[in-house]
Simulated scan of single mutants.
Amino acid sequence: MAKVIPGRQTARIEGPFVVFIIGTRVNKWYAVHKWLPVLRSMGPMIQELYSNKELGFLDASVSLTGRGVSLVQYWRSYDQLEQYARGGEHHLKAWKTFNRKLRAGNAVGIYHETYLVENGAHESIYVNMPPTGLGRASELHPVGAGGETSRQRAGLGGAGQGEPSADLPPS
């Protein structure tokens, strides 16, 4: 279990990056033979990514939903994400299998969303948390002067119209 870092931290990552969210949804619970292979295909892909950091993958977190699994992934660039999607050994196999065997049915669904953070602007806060999300994919730093508000941490300056001068009382 990751160690809790006391106090307020924010994530710092230089340059552009990509947030990629991918997940599955079980639509027909009784069709285990359809959705279980989809769920099982995620593990080898994640192992492949963690074993090959040169692919541009930074980190991922997994969440169980009411009907499936979602992963939030952080990537160094869109080009690297796309290159893995089209050429990663485990992804290509899973993608072809899904399209050939499962796409036409509706026992299991998949989705993904891709967010490009081109200018590097982002905002985060972690209070009494272990490294999580972008904070695990990048570096954590204590919140300091000039970073008290969400707007300031996003690099948008000032406290913001109608925004309190700080998200939380100082730690």
Rank of each mutant, 00 (worst) to 15 (best):
G162M: 08
E54W: 02
A104I: 08
L140P: 05
K101W: 04
Y84Q: 00
S171L: 14
M45P: 01
A104Y: 04
T114Y: 06
L71T: 07
G88S: 04
P131Y: 07
A166P: 03
A121N: 15
Y50D: 11
W29R: 15
T10G: 01
E148C: 05
P164E: 10
V38D: 00
Y74V: 02
M129Q: 14
T24Q: 14
V4L: 06
I13S: 06
H141A: 15
L92H: 00
I5D: 08
L168W: 14
I21T: 11
S61K: 14
K3L: 07
W29Y: 03
R151W: 11
W95N: 14
Y111P: 00
L81T: 03
G146F: 12
A85E: 05
P16F: 00
S138A: 14
V38C: 02
N27G: 09
G87S: 12
N128D: 15
Y126P: 09
G157P: 10
I13W: 04
D167E: 15
L49W: 01
P6S: 12
T114H: 01
G155F: 05
V19A: 09
E123D: 08
N99R: 14
I22H: 02
F17W: 11
Q161N: 10
S70E: 11
D167R: 14
S150Y: 07
G133L: 07
I5P: 01
K96W: 08
G162W: 07
V143L: 05
A137E: 07
P130A: 15
R67P: 09
P169Y: 02
Q80N: 11
V4R: 09
D59I: 07
Y50R: 11
S171C: 14
L134W: 03
G87Y: 00
E139G: 10
G133C: 01
K3C: 12
G109K: 00
R8Q: 15
K53T: 11
L36H: 05
V4M: 09
V143R: 03
S165G: 15
L36M: 10
G87L: 03
L156H: 13
H33E: 11
A2Y: 00
L116Q: 14
L58D: 05
S70I: 06
P6F: 12
N27L: 03
T132G: 13
V69I: 09
P131S: 12
I5A: 05
K3N: 15
G56L: 08
W75K: 02
H112Q: 02
L92V: 15
K28T: 13
Q9W: 13
D79N: 04
G68Q: 02
G147N: 13
K34M: 02
E54P: 03
G133Q: 10
D59P: 12
Q47V: 13
P37D: 01
K34S: 12
Q73S: 08
R12T: 03
E139C: 13
A11G: 10
G23L: 08
S41R: 03
T132K: 12
G7S: 02
A107V: 01
P131G: 08
G105L: 06
G144F: 02
Y115N: 04
A31N: 09
I13C: 06
Q83Y: 11
E54N: 05
G160Q: 06
W35Q: 01
A104G: 08
N106V: 04
A2Q: 12
F98S: 01
P37Q: 02
W75Q: 01
W75R: 07
N27H: 13
Q161H: 13
L36P: 12
K101S: 10
S124P: 03
